[in-house]
Amino acid sequence: MNLAVDHAWVLPFLGLALLPLVRLPVTGFDAPWNALLPADAQSRVWTWLIKLMGVVAITGLVLGLAGLHREEYAVDRVGNGAHIVLLLDRSQSMDHSFAGRATSGAEEAKSAAAERLLSEFVSERKNDRTGVAAYSTGPLFVLPLTDDREAVLAAVRALRLPALAQTHIGKGLLLALSYFAGQALTGSRIVLLVSDGAAVVDPDSEQKLRKLFKEHQIRLYWIFLRTLGSPGIFEIPEYPRDDNASVRPERYLHLFFESLGIPYKAYEAENPAALRQAIADIDRIESLPIHYQARIPRLDLTPLCYGAAGFALLLLIGVKLSEAESWEKA
């Protein structure tokens, strides 16, 4: 907690505050013989008060002009929150509706539904640090973990724009995990994967992913936006010959995630309502205590300075109004 000023060059004018100590604002006049006047404790008090008021008035004005404020500072708080990386699938199929068609008036695209509900999610969770990563054919670094909710919303809103090409999930996951490198281990660390499909994770990435998920103590949530009629992640194929990673990449990605030995939960959402349900569920689970730094914003102290100066001046005016007239005029 520090005090600071905006315009330091004004501060030397504080020297002016010494003036009231040597001069009085009241009109002096000669008494026939000052020594005749008895020492009077009340007068002394008044004299000092008048001087003090002058000092306060000038000091207040100078500090106000200098822009005195308390600087922004951070305090450690414990609250409910998490470090969340939103990993968003930006492959072309995300722009289709849940029914698997190009969107028409009534049907919402999967990406649009995700945008709407994720925006709500981000806006409501006040203590999270959120990062955004995306992937298509390549991994796309969007925003680092940040407290700036407006920035995160700006990145989530970009989901409304057309998506890109293919799905390369391995690279996307590696990118999402890289966000946690060098971050203090506090609160829960979450990767929230929102996708409508999956692809085979190449063996090279697989090894790295196994290691990193453990190392960073990640909790993984996968919201699978299932297109109507397509096989889900929990469904076991009818024919054993179909039970392989290239026919059912979703199911095998799910199995891979389960084998990681980390807290993991998958949701299948076939419509916006189910997506909302999944997000609400995650919101409920992920309210573990987290140490976070709350920012106490800058406090402007100039009204206080001007107020003090005003009060002092008011008293001085009062003194002035009850001033005796000089003997000569009287």
């Binding site: 002096g28 000052n34 007068s43 001033e323 005796a324």
Partner: peptide
Amino acid sequence: MDHGAGFSA
């Protein structure tokens, strides 16, 4: 009780 820089009652 008037004095150098005083007040009128």
